[in-house]
Design a binder for these strands. Structure first.
Length: 283
DNA sequence: AGTCGCCTGGTA
DNA sequence: TACCAGGCGACT
């Protein structure tokens, strides 16, 4: 569920509540959520202070005292909320109690979410954060120029750019005027520029609206995002394109449900035989 | 690059 | 009942 804008929303809501706070106690309600183990978190966390909360792509990074780092990935349905705002206790997977008595709850319907605690020297490799590409909002976009292959795969590839997921990938393609099945190596410099602009724009719009709530995403106070109201293509199968009026289609690209306006989005496909193709049609 | 598995719930 | 879902890693 959560992509970069949703994770950024969570961070912004969480930061003033947790930075500088000290853990009093941690309780696991689902062992598989925690690495290296729930027991390690229960034994190590008490007494540790949260010095800084930050993000890389879809990962939430708690920098703790004593050279420790706690890394959280929400995956599809992971969610933080404070005790007083927790709607449904059925999917509670962990409880973080601070020395001031407040309790931060981690819920996760599907149990894909991961919370890891490691020494600073190990957390990058243990959580695969060392393999992530640049975060397009924090670091800018560095690695698209030399990419090859299907556009949507590239956008979803966290090692290329960290933070884009299925919703924003489709929105970015629409804004770029590019069919997600296009080959990245076929983009000319103008199209590449437009694509980069769209990545930053779409993600920033998502952040501005506190994320997209299709069904599950909630902020730390149980609040829905607003960006679903601004989506141009995602989830709009058979609805008219806001630009041209033709109906939005749903396809499967990169193994994911994919929404496009075939009229507005240009397909830059690979030319099958290079031999008898005289016309170097760039479109 | 595509498919499966991890889980659970919502919807057709 | 079957299929789908904001993710991602392992495998083919």
């Amino acid at each position: 569920m959560p992509e970069l804008p949703e994770v950024e929303t969570v961070i912004r809501q969480l930061r003033p509540q947790v930075e500088g706070r000290k853990f009093w106690k941690f309780e696991s309600k689902n062992a598989s959520t925690f690495k290296p183990s729930a027991t390690v978190l229960e034994e190590i966390l008490p007494g540790k202070r949260i010095e800084k909360l930050r993000r890389h792509g879809k990962y939430i990074i708690f920098e703790l005292s004593d050279q420790l780092v706690m890394v959280v990935h929400l995956r599809m349905t992971g969610m933080f909320s404070f005790e007083e705002d927790l709607q449904n206790k059925s999917f509670l997977r962990g409880i973080f109690t601070f020395t001031n008595g407040r309790r931060l709850m981690f819920s996760d319907i599907r149990k894909f979410g991961q919370i890891c605690l490691y020494p600073r020297s190990e957390f990058m490799e243990k959580t695969n954060i060392d393999q992530l590409g640049f975060d397009p909002i924090i670091d800018g976009i560095e690695c698209l120029n030399f990419s090859r292959g299907i556009l949507k795969n590239t956008l979803l590839n966290q090692r290329c750019i960290a933070g884009i997921g299925n919703i924003y990938a489709d929105e970015i393609c629409f804004r770029s005027g590019l069919d997600p099945r296009s080959r990245v190596e076929k983009l000319d410099s103008k199209q590449m520029h437009r694509l980069k602009e769209s990545i930053v724009y779409c993600l920033q719009e998502g952040i501005k609206h506190n994320g997209t709530t299709i069904s599950d995403f909630r902020g730390t106070r149980g609040d829905s995002g607003k960006h679903q109201k601004y989506l141009q293509v995602y989830g709009r199968k058979d609805d008219p394109c806001y630009k041209c009026g033709s109906l939005i289609e749903k396809l499967r690209v990169a193994g994911r449900g994919t929404y496009i306006c075939v009229n507005c989005q240009l397909l830059l496909s690979s030319q099958i035989p290079a031999s008898n193709k005289k016309s170097a049609k760039s479109n």
